[in-house]
Amino acid sequence: MSETLTKSAARNIFYGGTAFFFVIFVGLVAHSVSTVNEMAINHPVTPSVARGKEVWEKHACIDCHTIMGEGAYFAPELGNVWVRYGGRDDAAGARESLKLWVKNQPSGIEGRRQMPHFDISEPDLDALVDFFKWTSEVNTQNWPPKVSG
């Protein structure tokens, strides 16, 4: 490497540059967080949505499914499952179908991936569906491209 760059210069550039980029990053994240909080005014995380997220985490659904594209790739994307189940046109119908789906697992179909049975109470199932509905309403810059997820 060139003789003009000394080790201490390289070190100082590293520290200075890292601090510089980290400050910018923190600033941008702070701005992003403020936009998220603003969105939450009209699109609040209700106690039921929060409970739904807890149910989601209790059973580690994330280690089979993706949500907004993150998680495991074993089972369908659920960030927009509310939309896929027609929740935008028929909220009551979508709610029933989603709850029924979870209750009816596993399918037991030979040669098809299985979702386990989870004992989830009726109010918790409703909370879970509220969580899916809330998630489907986040402005994801139009992701996923198709309703198939």
Binding site: F22, F25, L28, S32, M39, T140
Partner: peptide
């Protein structure tokens, strides 16, 4: 550090 942005595309953050 700013490359973290490649995970912030589709999760409800600004474009």
């Amino acid at each position: 550090i700013l490359g973290t942005g490649h995970h912030y595309y589709w999760i409800g953050l600004p474009a």
